[in-house]
Design a protein around this nucleic acid. Structure first.
Lengths: 226, 226
DNA sequence: CAATATTGTGTTGAATTTGTGATAGATGAA
DNA sequence: TTCATCTATCACAAATTCAACACAATATTG
């Protein structure tokens, strides 16, 4: 079971969120401020916490700070404004995601799902991606070429798995950076090339599975499309 | 390619929006009511839908309900008033954002951008443009002629994809420069001719798909017109 | 028909993009 | 701590693309 703590002083928002997420069969606990939230956290453990920034008493930042003292629970912050300063402060304090008010419940739910998935709260569905003689076991994070197991570095694996899951689609280097490295990563786009290079090296005879899309980026040639 | 469906019974609004968004090189399809919109959605997939609430026949709410039955496409609603009731009804039905009429095109464009961005993938819709024996896979950036894959340069591809997505429409060289090369490109308009030439060469038997419009520019003959 | 305007095409040096090896710093395990 | 990866970035070579130009071919006009 997935248990989520929603902390917001506005009861309308609390009700709205729980109502529109009924289809997900998550268990919601609600708190109106940071103090209440911390009390609940002593009693229960949560898969995810949603924290409003502006609250009377202990606000969202203070609560987040306390939460991070002894846990890595995924946290989504609700900020009134979408200001750069808030985002930076939040990342520094260890928030995992953001939503600016007003938001649509649909969006919040989508982000909850994404974050739960990322944190591994859902049992990963065992899925094996096949392409020619390449087999990618996504739950084991293991890649086989014919009968040999390849030893890929984490980045190499993530990059390969991401592209192989979307065969036939061309990605720009920036898209790959966003999806594989993370949305807030800043750095040289050519870094992607380096990892593509070492991937191709390890793929050996199947190196052609990763095609260069000139002027754009790369594409995994998987035969089967989505 | 980013493809957007704009549904509004007021043709003035339809024209205004497409005009102001020229710099974005999005592909707009337009419909005057829900029925038309649903018909278009059967034929194409969209990155985003903009729905006017007040329309004769099938209105915005009804259309939204139908859309949500089988897709998660981001939807922006155009409401005449900015009433709380409308917002709540819309969220319940699964709208992603709102904009109250009258609105500034600038604001709508900003919201479209924001929604495309946070809808995760600022990625292209998977769509294959067909014309005779030519197949253009816009997400793979790949073009097939019958069964052979053509190797186009980036410019050639962009030019072909842009024109083929708007069959039957004549473009001046300047328009093509603006849309394909970019709004701030300066250079000889005849450069377009060079690329048209090499495209025709590679199209071989289907070279006639690109027609010369004397005194104006070029047109892609796609059969189906929009 | 001739004169003019517009488009087609081959060529080419410059510019852009990608492949690759080297390397220093970061990270994490022993 | 030391050691062994891993990672990002750089620089240079190789591959590819591009814009522009000149001239040929074709269409339009009067």
């Amino acid at each position: 079971m997935i248990r989520i703590l929603l902390v917001d002083d506005d009861s309308k928002i609390r009700d709205m969120v729980t109502e529109y997420s009924q289809a997900e069969s998550w268990l919601f606990d609600k708190a109106a401020n940071g103090i209440e939230a911390l009390r609940l956290m002593e009693k229960h453990s949560y898969n995810l916490i949603i924290l409003d920034v502006m609250m009377p008493g202990l606000d969202g930042w203070g609560t987040l700070r306390r939460v991070r003292q002894d846990s890595d629970i995924p946290v989504i912050m609700l900020t009134a404004r979408d200001e750069e300063y808030d985002r930076l402060l939040g990342f520094e304090l260890g928030a995992d995601d953001y939503i600016g008010k007003p938001f649509s419940p649909r969006e919040l739910i989508a982000r909850i799902k994404a974050l739960l998935k990322r944190s591994g709260a859902y049992d990963t569905v065992r899925e094996v991606i096949e392409a020619r003689s390449l087999f990618i076991d996504t739950s084991a994070r293991q890649v086989k070429l014919a009968d040999n197991t390849l030893t890929l570095t984490p980045r190499e694996y993530d990059l390969l798995a991401f592209m192989a899951a979307r065969p036939g689609q061309a990605f720009t280097r920036d898209q790959l950076l966003n999806h594989v490295w993370g949305i807030d990563y800043v750095g040289d786009a050519r870094t992607v090339d380096s990892h593509i290079k070492s991937l191709r090296e390890k793929l050996g005879p199947e190196r052609e599975l990763i095609a260069t899309v000139w002027g754009t980026g790369y594409r995994f040639e998987g035969g089967k499309n989505r």
